Simulated assay, not measured.
Amino acid sequence: MTRYGAAHKQATRERIVSTAARRLKSDGVAGSGVATLMADAGLTNGAFYAHFASKEALVATVVEAELATQCRTLADLAPGRAGVEDLVRRYLSPTHRDHPEAGCPSAALVEDVVRAGAEVREAYTSQVVAVGEVLAGLVGDAGPDARARLLAAFAGMVGTLQLARAVTDRRLSDALLAHGAEQALAAFAGPAVGAPTSDGTRPGPTGDDLPGSRP
């Protein structure tokens, strides 16, 4: 009988998590059975429990891994307004709307997280807190409420993307993305994002800042 080492087992586990992430974000937790998730990874259903104690354990691992990846992506953005505009344009874009399997875990899975057990919710909480901290660094906001404020702004983008995905009217969906981008840029505005004008207001986005101006 062939015996595999720890490196092989770890690589297999990572493959399960990676393929499960795409399926879960596309079909949701309820629509993704263990057999389907394992088939996506090219493995038999019986191999599942060699890597995870339960489906919830896999979902928790996927949520944690996906948000950790999102944190690293956000951390790579340029600090200040340029990075915020890059984030908003890419997030509220037709491409992101049309490909949930490759996109934000919150937009695809937050309803599943709300209904999940403690293991999944705790994994989500720990990582979404990290997202808030990275966003605070991106905009240069070290205030006591920065994390909550910026997560609320991020939640606005999540909701806009979900609504744009839900409606069947393509023109309405595109308009939701465009207007959502304006609202998101205003919500993210902070000391490092846009300096106040002489009347105390902050400059709003231009047409070049809206989805579709670049990939």
Rank of each mutant, 00 (worst) to 15 (best):
K9I: 06
A175Y: 08
E101D: 13
L87H: 04
G117L: 11
A35L: 05
A57H: 10
A6E: 14
A107S: 04
A118S: 15
V134W: 05
V134R: 01
L161P: 07
A7E: 15
L151F: 12
R170A: 15
A6I: 05
M38T: 06
L138F: 01
E122V: 14
T73H: 13
A164C: 00
H51N: 13
R165M: 06
A116R: 05
V114K: 10
V84N: 01
A155C: 11
L135G: 05
A192W: 04
F154N: 13
R90T: 10
Y91A: 10
D141E: 03
L150R: 05
A39I: 07
V17R: 09
V110N: 09
F188A: 09
V129R: 12
V62F: 05
R202I: 04
L210D: 08
V88E: 06
V167E: 01
L37R: 07
A186K: 12
P79G: 00
K25L: 10
A130Y: 00
V63P: 02
L24M: 05
E64H: 15
C71S: 11
R202H: 06
S54F: 01
V17W: 00
A184W: 11
T160D: 02
E119R: 15
V128K: 06
V193N: 05
Y4L: 14
D145Y: 01
R97M: 06
Y91E: 10
T168Q: 14
S106C: 02
A21M: 10
D174M: 09
V120E: 01
L150Q: 05
T206F: 09
F48D: 08
A60Q: 03
G200C: 12
R22W: 02
A39V: 03
A30K: 08
Q70R: 10
S213L: 03
A136V: 04
V139Y: 00
T95F: 14
A153K: 02
A102K: 10
T201W: 13
G33Y: 07
L151I: 14
V120R: 00
G46F: 11
A175G: 12
A146E: 08
H96T: 15
A192Y: 00
T73Y: 08
G194S: 07
